[in-house]
Amino acid sequence: MTLEIITARSLSACRHGFFTRRGGASSGVFEGLNCGPGSSDQSQAVQVNRIRAADALEVDADRLLTAHQVHSAEVAHVTGPFRQKPRIDGLVTATPGLALGVLTADCMPVLMADAEARVIGAAHAGWRGARAGVLEATIDAMEALGAQRRRIAAAIGPAISQAAYEVGPEFLESFLDDDPANARFFAGGTNGRSHFDLVGYGLMRLREAGVGQADWTRHCTYSDPARFYSYRRSTHAAEADYGRLLSAIRL
């Protein structure tokens, strides 16, 4: 099956893609293009999937770089293949021929580019990372390489939508402690629970950081099992594990 790659118009100056699960070699609960080496999928299948994605991006597989993601605000400037994967959640580069990737299954994959400065970035942003500042840290790291935030285009790929993201009262209270205005990212649920707008929160952080453009592809990972992996959906189904979607950008 052919790979399915979602793109963002705002990033059209750079080769990039938010890959769906279609077109991969994995089977079972991982069926499709599982690109997560941290999953319990067969390592050979994951390797084949990553090679297919790298081919689509027109880079060698060892130049498709993803980190050991830890829900942090840590970002690294990369200039070549990793000897050992860093424990970080943001990558930036000005080196041609490198593809920066993030792996997600409900969290936000955020790809960024200053096409004029030829600087790109990629961030993995779940609620912890976004709250800790990984998006702003990635923008800062891009500026250190010559980008200007007013020229940066940022696109959020497939992520869990507010309708599918129910949270408890302690979660809401922690965000209100940060800023009472965060109440706008929560909608009423049942039994004291509410629904969190992760993508809306991410877009707010990006826009307040001063990027020139920030948008979302408007795809929900939870509600479309044929196209996307979802940690939360897999948990609700009591599945043993789940696949990871790849999103990547290159110069």
Rank of each mutant, 00 (worst) to 15 (best):
M1H: 04
E4A: 10
I5R: 13
A8F: 04
S10W: 11
S10H: 10
L11E: 01
H16G: 04
G17C: 11
G17F: 05
F18C: 07
T20F: 03
R21V: 07
R22P: 00
S26A: 15
G28E: 09
G28A: 03
V29E: 14
F30A: 12
E31L: 02
E31C: 03
L33G: 10
N34A: 07
N34K: 01
G38N: 09
S39Y: 08
S40C: 02
D41F: 00
Q44R: 06
A45V: 14
V48M: 11
R50C: 11
I51K: 14
A53Y: 03
L57V: 12
L57C: 10
V59I: 11
D60K: 06
A61D: 12
D62C: 09
T66K: 00
H71D: 15
S72W: 06
A73M: 00
V75I: 08
A76N: 08
A76K: 12
H77N: 05
V78K: 03
P81V: 12
R83C: 04
R83P: 09
I88W: 08
D89S: 13
V92G: 08
G97Q: 02
L98C: 10
L100S: 07
G101D: 09
G101M: 07
T104F: 02
A105Q: 07
A113F: 04
A113I: 00
D114I: 00
D114M: 02
D114H: 06
E116Y: 05
V119M: 04
A122H: 04
G126W: 06
G126V: 02
W127L: 01
G129R: 01
G129D: 04
A130I: 01
A130H: 02
R131A: 12
R131T: 10
G133H: 04
V134D: 06
L135C: 06
E136A: 15
T138V: 13
T138D: 08
T138A: 10
A144M: 07
A144E: 15
Q148E: 14
R150T: 11
A153V: 02
A153E: 04
A154D: 05
A155N: 08
P158L: 07
S161P: 02
E166C: 10
G168P: 08
P169N: 05
E170N: 04
L172P: 01
L172T: 15
D179R: 07
A181G: 03
N182Y: 11
N182S: 03
N182V: 00
N182M: 08
F186I: 11
F186K: 07
F186Y: 09
G189I: 13
N191F: 12
G192E: 13
S194T: 15
S194P: 02
V199M: 07
V199F: 03
Y201A: 05
G202H: 09
G202Y: 07
M204P: 01
L206T: 05
E208K: 10
G210Y: 14
Q213P: 01
A214M: 11
D215I: 01
W216H: 15
W216D: 15
H219N: 14
H219S: 13
T221H: 03
A226V: 00
A226Y: 13
A226W: 12
R227G: 01
R227C: 01
F228K: 02
F228G: 03
Y229M: 09
S230P: 01
S234E: 07
S234L: 03
T235Q: 15
T235M: 12
A237W: 00
A238Y: 00
E239A: 15
G243I: 03
L245V: 05
L246I: 10
S247D: 14
R250G: 14
L251P: 14
